[in-house]
């Protein structure tokens, strides 16, 4: 594990009642690099990201961002800490009651007190960067297709030029062509900003495209991590089973156990 990581998780654990979701996660992401965490449904990927953001408080372990311990932050300190982040949610999580441009500009207006007119201009520019015209800014999220919502979610994630961006299942539910478009946009945006990123996905095409390093999570533990180019020759039975999508192997789905 790299000790000089921008984002470092050490022995992070989280249980919900008797269910242990994170069982001692250890990862390190250097500044400006992209880590993709792969793994099946219910293995703890989303919980891991939410513990870093402070949406879920870990039971134990250490999470440092730029060398600063963040698990104990609260109130204004946490709000300040969150200004450094952008996040693209699996379902885009756009605010239904706000037009698209205000969704994109939300973090600027509410979090950074940017004047609305200035924030609107930035939002229109960010929409342009993800391939959407200014006319889309006036629409409401319900009027957009799934792919367009993901683009707007991406524009919102990068609107404030964050130093860290999380992508939660960025291509889930999209057709392969739109998924590739989103992957390209993610790579472009991340390169432009020089941001440190963690993505979680079970789409291997997406992982190969956007990752510098890949980590595999299973039952709340990182069972393998290495450079993205090494994923096909990892020699790890969990990784091999996952990337080839085989039912047989060490990973047994809950439905097969019953």
């Amino acid at each position: 594990m790299e000790e000089n990581g921008h984002i470092v998780l050490k022995d992070v654990r989280k249980a919900f009642g008797p269910k242990h979701v994170l069982n001692g996660i250890n990862i390190s992401v250097p500044k400006g690099r992209s880590l993709v965490v792969i793994g099946g449904s219910g293995t703890g990927k989303s919980v891991m990201i939410k513990t870093i953001l402070g949406i879920i408080r870990p039971d134990s372990g250490s999470i440092t961002i730029g060398g600063e311990e963040v698990t104990k932050l609260s109130g204004k300190e946490r709000d300040q800490f969150l200004l450094r982040f952008g996040m693209l949610f699996q379902g885009a999580a756009l605010f239904d009651s706000l037009p698209v441009w205000e969704n994109v500009a939300f973090g600027l207006i509410q979090g950074r007190n940017t004047p609305r007119i200035e924030a609107r201009d930035i939002a229109i520019e960010k929409l342009r960067q993800v391939g959407l015209g200014p006319e889309v800014g006036a629409l409401y999220p319900a009027e957009l297709s799934g792919g367009m919502q993901k683009r707007v979610g991406l524009a919102r994630a990068v609107a404030a030029d964050p130093e860290i961006i999380f992508f939660d299942e960025p291509t889930t539910g999209l057709d392969p062509i739109m998924a590739d478009v989103i992957n390209n946009l993610i790579v472009d945006c991340v390169k432009r900003l020089g941001a440190t990123t963690i993505s979680i996905t079970h789409d291997m095409a997406s992982a190969r495209k956007i990752a510098d390093r890949i980590a595999m999570i299973h039952k709340g533990e990182i069972v393998w991590q290495g450079p993205a180019r090494a994923v096909d020759s990892s020699g790890n039975p969990y990784v091999d089973q996952f990337i080839h999508g085989r039912a047989e192997g060490p990973i047994q789905m809950e439905v097969l156990k019953a």
């Binding site: 709000d79 982040f85 949610f89 999580a93 939300f106």
Partner: peptide, 13 residues
Amino acid sequence: TEQIDALTTLATN
């Protein structure tokens, strides 16, 4: 639909 989580990540309580 994770909109409340999204608010949090946008530094809005």
